[in-house]
């Protein structure tokens, strides 16, 4: 496959999409070439909508989408030939075997690689000709990823591909993604609720909350800057709203998400701050005062 030269695998600018009961509003972020971005957010936040917009399954009301530095205008099979995707919904009928699926995809995909597909099937123990309906959830997830990777895509769009997998299967899955990233032209957008997986592999985290973008930042700077201040309710009430990004009241007091660890420490030298995990950032941000 001919390698493209580009700076950003994905570039979204002011992307909006309205439905009767949901609105995705003003989403802007960029996924640089050769990086992994984790897309986080609660159920119904707009992660799948964003991925569907990238695949032209939905059309944006406003805003622009650029893939590999090229504008995405409607149904573009050429751009999709450079993308591998795993959707939560939508796949082959379950009576088919992986070999039959490959027979179909070989004719539909210009970059399909039979040898690589067979290698991946062997590696995942999927080469025994089992039909999809006889596979476990973990095997199906691996099969979906195998089919997405066999044509050597330059961008993987994965919508909650590890949901329902046990830790061992998840770990294997993430190892494969990391191998995929050994080619510096490849990039991944990975939507997941399993924040520990994203901490392990994602270079960037984009957080969508109720259809709006809360942040899109480098994972390392997020984990360095954010902290959790566990304090009593009285101490919390003395903080001004601009000092924290969110909080959660509990039986013992309050967990407060601090957005800028350094400046907070300067203002409150006695405060003890715990490192914030991605899960802390996500759950406490969601309870941000409006």
């Amino acid at each position: 496959m001919k390698q493209m030269t580009y700076e950003n695998a994905i570039e979204l600018e002011g992307l909006s999409k309205s439905f009767d009961d949901f609105q995705l509003k003003d989403i802007s972020f960029a996924l640089p070439r050769g990086t992994i971005m984790g897309l986080i957010g609660e159920n119904g936040a707009g992660k799948t909508t964003t991925i569907k917009l990238l695949l032209s399954l939905l059309r944006p009301d406003s805003g622009t989408i650029r893939l590999f530095d090229r504008p995405l205008n409607g149904d573009d099979p050429y751009l999709r030939s450079c993308i591998g995707s795993v959707l939560d919904q939508g796949f082959f009928y379950e009576e088919l075997t992986p070999k039959q699926m490959a027979n179909v995809l070989r004719r539909c995909h210009p970059h399909w690689d039979d040898r690589y597909f067979a290698q991946l099937l062997d590696r995942f123990g999927l080469s025994d000709g089992k039909r999809c309906k006889d596979m476990s959830r973990g095997m199906k997830a691996k099969l979906k990823l195998t089919l997405a990777m066999a044509p050597h895509p330059q961008l993987l769009l994965l919508d909650e591909p590890t949901s329902g997998l046990d830790p061992v299967a998840r770990s294997e899955f993430l190892d494969l993604l990391q191998e995929f990233m050994q080619d510096e032209n490849c990039s991944i957008l990975l939507s997941s609720h399993i924040t520990s997986d994203l901490e392990r592999i994602a270079d960037y985290i984009t957080y969508i909350h109720q259809g709006r973008l809360l942040f899109s930042e480098e994972t390392t700077s997020l984990l360095e800057n954010y902290a959790v201040y566990r304090c009593g309710w009285e101490d919390f009430q003395q903080l001004s709203a601009c000092q924290y990004a969110g909080y959660r009241k509990n039986a013992f007091g309050c967990d407060v998400l601090i957005q800028n660890r350094d400046s907070f420490t300067q203002e409150h030298p006695d405060a003890v701050l715990d490192p914030a995990s991605l899960e802390d950032i996500m759950t406490l941000h969601a309870q941000r005062p409006q």
């Binding site: 032209s56 399954l57 149904d75 099979p77 993308i83 919904q89 939508g90 995909h109 769009l157």
Partner: peptide
């Protein structure tokens, strides 16, 4: 069969035009 497995959603992620 296509409807049951949401095939159209999947096929449109491939380099296949409508």
């Amino acid at each position: 069969y296509d409807h049951a497995c949401h095939w159209t959603d999947y096929a449109l992620t491939l380099p296949v035009s409508r």
